[in-house]
Amino acid sequence: PIEDLFTSLNRHIERSEFEQAVKVADQVLSTNPSDEDAMRCKVVALIKADNIDDALSTIQSSQKFTFDFNYLKAYCLYRQNRLDEALEALKIQENNPATMLLKSQILYRSGEMDACVEFYQKLQKSKIDSLEINFVAGLISAGRASE
């Protein structure tokens, strides 16, 4: 039964056995391709297994889900250094802390330091661990170390 598969999937996630988690998620999806939890688990497990190519192709080949996979898609594009496409994927996203953080990292890699720093300034009130490390990197790279 599907409950047993999810119990197994959950156990693999808890043990950080991400490749096995992908296999179990695939078992669920083979009988129910529209199972959103299984699809989300598969994509996240692929990312955490550092299999970015498969994570992206899974997102792109999947049918429409209620869950918005755009952040995960943008993250995969960022990891592949497809920076323009990554920013494009985030364009329609609400500016929540996760989206702003990813945008600032993309802008940093694109060398757009002032825009990058602007997002870090907006993020300061969000209390994100270690944010200041990237903020300082942006300021230094923008030639604004004195700030």
Binding site: I2, E3, F6, T7, L9, N10, I13, E36, D37, R40, C41, V44, A45, I47, K48, F67, Y71, L72, Y75, Y78, P97, A98, L101, L102, Q105, Y108, I128, D129, S130, L131, I133, N134, V136, A137, I140, S141
Partner: peptide, 21 residues
């Protein structure tokens, strides 16, 4: 080059499977 962390990664999480087991 200054050190930059992949903080966006920390926002990637599994859904809760609590009510699926």
């Amino acid at each position: 080059n200054p050190i930059v962390l992949d903080l966006a990664y920390n926002f990637i999480d599994f859904p809760s499977l609590e009510n699926r087991m």
